[in-house]
Computed example of a mutant assay.
Amino acid sequence: MKINLKNFCALEGSHINLKKFPTTVAPVYKSKKDYKRMLEDHVAQLSALQQLHYASNRYALLLIFQALDAAGKDGAIRHVMSGINPQGCQVFSFKHPTPTELEHDFLWRTTRDLPERGRIGIFNRSYYEEVLIVRVHPEILRSEGLPDALLDEKEVWQGRYRSIVDMERHLHRNGTRIIKFFLHLSKDEQRKRFLARIDEPDKNWKFSLADIEERKFWSRYTTAFEECISATSTADSPWYVVPADDKENARLIVSQIVLDTFEGLKMAYPEVSDERRHELLAIRKRLAK
């Protein structure tokens, strides 16, 4: 079953109102068995395309996952990319910047981890934290060591949006394709998942008091995500607002988006020259004796 992805893509120049984007939609799978079959099919296709991507060595692919706590970023990455060769894929998680990172511009620490051509890079949180959590908690901005003239909150976010868009356009011009996922979770579903983390011993490690404290800022985070997505979703590097209340559905949507992006690259295995073909045939004859 082909998933219609247009409903999840934030169009360039549009003003995003997350209330108009559902956190749950009709499942694209018919049953748990059907979900497993569809995911296995997607994973097998991704594995084959990743091998072609690695061999063609023309593009880099960067996947960015942003969401509120318990939206399923880790699970989506783990399940969707389960068939990918680890040699061709790297996952980076970005938390609070280190003192060294704070001595540089806000894009520096993530730029170091951008994928090479032929590789897939996955950012579990990213430079977008600098216009999300930092916007919700402006005291973080004031602790970043910036000159006072750069701390005007009426201008700093628009400036950072421009920096992000300019960088992503630069990367696109140089062969990096960027897909950005916002896993859109409802507040009630987050509450249920937090309760599960408390009630199930093997999930206790996932829970912290800070998670509950951040729920107090739900409306602020909503505004920050809306303005961020509105300002930085472009035709070349789009944001996808993925309904995340159903984890299985979200994984199928994410994997289909990655598949479609790969297929749009028109990749091909490197052509073998006549000279190389003759060399290979000569080697084959020697091995066959």
Results as ranks from 00 to 15, higher is better:
3 I>D: 05
3 I>A: 03
3 I>C: 04
6 K>S: 08
6 K>Q: 11
8 F>G: 04
10 A>E: 12
11 L>I: 15
13 G>K: 09
14 S>G: 05
17 N>H: 12
17 N>W: 08
18 L>V: 00
18 L>R: 01
19 K>N: 13
20 K>R: 07
26 A>T: 15
28 V>S: 06
32 K>I: 03
34 D>Y: 00
35 Y>V: 05
41 D>S: 05
42 H>G: 05
44 A>E: 10
44 A>G: 06
46 L>R: 04
48 A>Q: 13
51 Q>E: 10
53 H>Q: 06
54 Y>G: 10
55 A>W: 07
56 S>C: 07
60 A>H: 02
61 L>M: 11
61 L>G: 07
66 Q>L: 07
66 Q>P: 09
66 Q>R: 11
69 D>N: 04
70 A>V: 05
72 G>P: 10
72 G>R: 07
73 K>D: 09
74 D>Q: 03
75 G>Q: 03
76 A>V: 14
77 I>W: 06
77 I>S: 07
81 M>H: 01
82 S>M: 03
86 P>E: 03
87 Q>D: 14
88 G>I: 08
88 G>D: 07
92 F>K: 11
94 F>K: 14
95 K>W: 08
95 K>H: 14
100 T>G: 05
103 E>Q: 13
104 H>I: 00
110 T>K: 13
113 D>S: 14
114 L>S: 00
116 E>H: 13
116 E>K: 11
117 R>K: 15
121 G>T: 09
122 I>C: 06
123 F>I: 11
125 R>M: 08
125 R>A: 06
126 S>A: 03
130 E>W: 05
134 V>G: 11
134 V>I: 14
135 R>I: 06
136 V>E: 02
138 P>F: 00
141 L>W: 04
147 P>V: 08
147 P>D: 10
154 K>I: 00
154 K>Q: 03
155 E>N: 13
157 W>I: 02
162 R>N: 14
165 V>S: 03
169 R>G: 15
170 H>R: 14
176 T>L: 01
178 I>E: 08
179 I>R: 01
180 K>S: 09
181 F>H: 04
188 D>K: 05
189 E>W: 01
191 R>D: 03
192 K>M: 10
194 F>G: 00
196 A>R: 01
197 R>T: 01
199 D>S: 13
203 K>I: 02
205 W>P: 01
208 S>M: 12
208 S>Q: 15
211 D>Q: 04
213 E>I: 01
213 E>C: 02
217 F>E: 07
224 A>V: 14
229 I>A: 11
229 I>F: 11
230 S>Q: 03
231 A>Q: 10
234 T>L: 01
234 T>A: 01
236 D>K: 11
240 Y>V: 09
245 D>L: 02
250 A>S: 09
254 V>A: 02
254 V>P: 02
254 V>F: 02
256 Q>Y: 01
259 L>R: 07
260 D>S: 09
263 E>W: 12
266 K>G: 11
267 M>D: 10
270 P>E: 12
272 V>F: 05
280 L>A: 13
280 L>P: 08
281 L>V: 13
284 R>S: 15
284 R>I: 15
284 R>Y: 13
286 R>T: 08
289 K>A: 15
